[in-house]
Design a protein around this nucleic acid. Structure first.
Lengths: 141, 141
DNA sequence: TATTGTTATACTCTATAACTATA
DNA sequence: TATAGTTATAGAGTATAACAATA
């Protein structure tokens, strides 16, 4: 046997695969609602804010504005979001959840919480909270 | 203001972005060595094991065997790994680090450790160890 | 027949460049 | 001139299918 450490026991690997596993759980859980994890991200932004422009949503999520177009096209086709020109600046689109979108978001949030709980099932609630705090601190900078 | 929780304060988001940040730090740190994070993953597998086949390396890393071909092509071109037919089963390629590959791996490991330390700079060593333990437990299943 | 490595191809995801309309 | 949204296009990354050599 080699004296080298196991290739999987390194923080970058552990973080990546924990991320992947939770993302898979969430995507699977959201499947019946007709949205995926990325779309759920858009819904969270729209539910949190007053109606905003596409660009603001894109910047909040850290994606390009051209990527946001396709994302919103899909959500609009499903009747989850609506777009209309901003009367105050007609270059902008005001984006907001539709009534159906609000319901989908509420269901998606419940489904997400369950997936997260399942993901954390192997550790104590205290350890789960500690994990969340630690990650927040690391991302604060 | 909305009563909805902030869209970024959700475990899936925190995990994803912590992963991204560490991956970026590691890639940047490895740049002068001429390898990236994914190639460093291959090096870790090869350093840990006795010489193995391409397929075994691919499976350990969870990538397709066709993906491994291109990865090893790059590492071989750089003189970091060598490939030769396995005398015991000539369908297989035995893959191992070259002398230069061993040196590159040693340097890469030092560089990685520094990037990880920088990443964890904002929390206590105890919290860093707790993070590692928690992630290991979550991935054990 | 099944397996390993390889190649060609297709698919997904995302960004860059160019266009339209508004400011 | 600059900005928001859109479209077309290109690039990175990875997987699927088909093939050659070997078992």
């Amino acid at each position: 046997m080699s004296t080298e450490p196991a290739p999987h026991d390194v923080l970058a690997y552990l973080l990546k695969h924990a991320t992947l596993r939770l993302a898979t759980l969430v995507d699977d859980a959201l499947l019946p609602l007709g949205v995926d994890g990325k779309e759920f991200g858009v819904l969270r932004v729209l539910a949190h804010r007053e109606p905003t422009s596409q660009l603001q949503v894109a910047q909040t999520l850290g994606v390009d504005r051209t990527t946001m177009v396709a994302l919103l096209d899909g959500l609009e086709r499903k009747g989850i979001v609506g777009r209309r020109p901003d009367p105050a600046d007609r270059r902008r689109n005001v984006v907001q959840l539709t009534g159906q979108g609000e319901r989908t978001f509420a269901e998606a949030q419940a489904v997400y919480q369950k997936a997260e709980t399942d993901f954390l099932a192997g550790i104590s609630p205290r350890a789960g909270e500690q994990l969340r705090r630690t990650l927040r601190t690391l991302l604060e900078d």
